Amino acid sequence: MRDLDETDMAILRLLGEDARRPYSEIAERVGLSGPAVSDRVQRLEEAGVINRFTVDVDQSQLRAGVPVFVRAIVPSGTVDDCKAAIADADAVEHVFVTADGELWFYARAQVQRVREWLEGLLPEADGVDYDVTLMDDAEWTPSLDGTQFALTCAECGNTVDSEGESTRIEGEVYHFCCPSCQGRFENRYDRLEEGV
């Protein structure tokens, strides 16, 4: 386990701009060989920093509905379930949860059926209120500027440095700042699994 360095961040920025960019081109830009870039990308995937490569489709070219930005006020105990239901909806592209438990999401809705669509989105939740804003334009440009150059401990939240540990539990990668944090996390995980 090692810290993410400037080269890792440069690779992530370049892949963020174009996930199909050839490793040879990335290598030229960061001063490494193509195989070295491939190794770093593989390590970033194994560490869970890169989850997947995707495509950014311009939905307006597909006439896939009208872009709306929706604020959903839901009962406090239902935020996680409502977020999951909203994220599963085909028309929803991005979901955000505010610090005070409101859900905001960006979607493409059919013009004549926005209210009906929203009511069917969370049919189980009582006391849900929506504010809908029609969007004129939207651009999603994720940036790595201002991000930290280290992973975070899954147990205590501290920075994971070169002395840290990583483990994969049921397909999910977890990072720890020290062996004792890893041990506490694994023990708690095992106890929860036994209780299920």
Rank of each mutant, 00 (worst) to 15 (best):
L14C: 09
L14D: 07
L14A: 10
L15K: 08
L15C: 09
L15H: 05
L15I: 12
L15E: 06
G16S: 15
E17W: 07
D18Y: 08
D18Q: 12
A19G: 15
A19T: 11
R20S: 13
R20K: 12
R20N: 11
R20W: 10
R21S: 00
R21E: 12
R21M: 15
P22D: 10
P22I: 14
Y23C: 11
Y23G: 08
S24Q: 14
S24Y: 08
E25W: 09
A27W: 04
A27K: 10
E28R: 15
E28W: 10
V30G: 05
V30C: 00
G31Q: 04
L32T: 05
L32I: 07
S33G: 11
S33T: 15
G34I: 01
P35K: 06
P35V: 06
A36G: 14
V37D: 00
V37F: 08
S38K: 14
S38D: 06
D39N: 13
D39Q: 12
D39P: 05
R40G: 03
R40K: 14
V41W: 01
V41F: 04
R43E: 11
R43F: 03
E46Y: 02
G48S: 05
V49C: 02
I50K: 02
R52A: 13
R52T: 13
R52W: 01
R52K: 11
R52E: 11
F53T: 04
F53P: 02
F53W: 02
F53Y: 13
T54A: 12
V55Y: 10
V57D: 04
